[in-house]
Amino acid sequence: MARHNVTVTVNGEAHTREVDSRLLLVHLIRDELALTGTHIGCDTTHCGACTVLVDGVPTKSCTVLAVQADGAEIGTVEGLAGADGMNALQEGFMQEHGLQCGFCTPGMLMTGTALLAANANPSEAEIREAISGNLCRCTGYVNIVKAVQYAAAKTAADGAGEDN
C-alpha cells in the first residue's frame, strides 16, 4: 500500500502529512490533526456528522479519501468562530436551542454555513432540504431551521447596518 504526501489547508493553516492511500479524510482531520469537532456517526454517508467544507463545498468527510483532498482548503467547525468565539450561525443555534447532545451539531453548522453562503435568505423548505443529509436524533429539526433563519436575519441586519 502506497504512502502519499498530502497537503491540506485546514481553517487557514497548512498541514502536510504522509498518509496511506486508504486513510479517510475524517481520520486525517480527527486523528492526525487532532481536530475532534468533526464527528463520525454512520460510516455510510447517511448522517452527515462528519460534514466539512472542501473548497467551500459541504462534504461528508467519512466518504472521501485524504489523498483526494490533497491541495484542498478544508473548513471545520473549529474554524467558524471569529475572535468572540461564535459567529451568527453558532449564535443562532444557541439562541434557538438548535442543539441538544451536540454530536450532529458541527455537521449541521458546516452544512448551514454553505447554505447561507449560497442563499442568504433561505426558506424553511430550502433549509430542510439543505440539511436533509444531516441526521439529528435530539432536536426534531424545528429549532435547527430556526437557528439558520436567525443567522440569516442577523447577517442581513448587520449588513444593513454597515450600509448605513
Binding site: H46, P58, K60, V64
Partner: peptide
C-alpha cells in the same frame, strides 16, 4: 438522488 451533501461529490 441521495442527499445534497452526497450530490456535491
Amino acid at each position: 438522488i441521495a442527499d445534497p451533501l452526497v450530490r456535491n461529490r
